Amino acid sequence: MNLLDAVAVFAAGVAAGGINTVVGSGSLITFPTLVALGYPPVVANVSNNIGLVPGSATGAYGYREELKGQRDRLLRLGAGSLIGAVIGALLLLGLPAEAFDVIVIALIGIAVVLVMVQPRLQKWVLRRREGGEHHPHGGVTLWIAVLFAGMYGGYFGAAQGVILIALLGIMLDEDLQRVNAAKNVLSAIVNGSAAVLFTLMWLISDTEISWWAVLLIASGATLGGLIGARVGRRIPPLVLRGVIVVVGIAAIVNLLA
């Protein structure tokens, strides 16, 4: 890796860390960058996943005010994210990437639609809850959905934030900024769990990781996560929803290209 390549990977890490904090889909910047520089897709995917972990952590820290009062909820949902991430990471190491191409595109498309209609769906869910049992953590349905989102994130990760913010926004009676804060924590759990598994597989098997790429992405994403938290917390809900939709559509276009 020469100096220009290193600068490109670092810059991609900054952009990805910021986008992941505000919306998600930062991997659609770093992953293609690594592939364009000649890294095999699986190596690029694994290295990218590990590198983005610090950015997820700083993004979650930046939203600490919006995380107040969500501890129990995140402990419950975080367990689903962890289990799903491990399953998804194992699928990445054991299955060909082509097997998930169509599924990945379909998931992002569904997530974009869910974000667009989220206010109406949330009102419908709240009406259904009236007179019945209230689930401040989203109930079993949300836990299972978060587990599947974790599987997706452990396998590829791009746009997992879009999917999570759509699910949480519909199933929880919270404003979008608090939902986004919860999304950042769950994304950090997914990325961190998958990264630990990838590192263990690197230690005990022939799983290939580019640690230079990891270091550069991690450095950039750490800075980007802090910047993203400052910007994202000041975006009005309607604008944030629009950004989510645009990023989700861009993700689909990238994957179809």
Results as ranks from 00 to 15, higher is better:
106 A>K: 04
85 A>V: 03
98 E>M: 03
113 V>N: 05
84 G>W: 05
125 V>F: 09
124 W>L: 14
123 K>V: 06
87 I>M: 07
102 V>N: 05
126 L>C: 01
82 L>M: 01
111 A>M: 06
120 R>E: 02
122 Q>T: 14
126 L>G: 06
81 S>T: 02
109 G>M: 10
83 I>Y: 07
129 R>T: 08
133 E>F: 08
105 I>T: 15
130 E>A: 06
110 I>K: 00
90 L>G: 13
133 E>G: 00
93 L>Y: 10
86 V>I: 15
111 A>H: 01
96 P>R: 00
117 V>F: 15
107 L>G: 00
85 A>Y: 06
124 W>D: 07
128 R>I: 04
118 Q>M: 15
100 F>C: 04
92 L>K: 08
131 G>H: 02
97 A>T: 15
109 G>S: 00
107 L>S: 01
124 W>N: 09
121 L>D: 12
86 V>P: 01
111 A>E: 01
132 G>D: 00
127 R>L: 10
112 V>P: 13
116 M>N: 00
111 A>N: 03
100 F>W: 02
84 G>L: 09
123 K>G: 05
129 R>M: 14
85 A>D: 04
124 W>G: 10
83 I>S: 10
113 V>E: 08
84 G>A: 04
117 V>K: 11
107 L>W: 03
112 V>T: 15
109 G>D: 10
89 A>P: 11
97 A>H: 01
92 L>C: 13
122 Q>Y: 03
97 A>V: 14
131 G>I: 02
92 L>A: 10
116 M>L: 10
103 I>A: 13
127 R>M: 13
112 V>G: 06
107 L>H: 04
97 A>W: 08
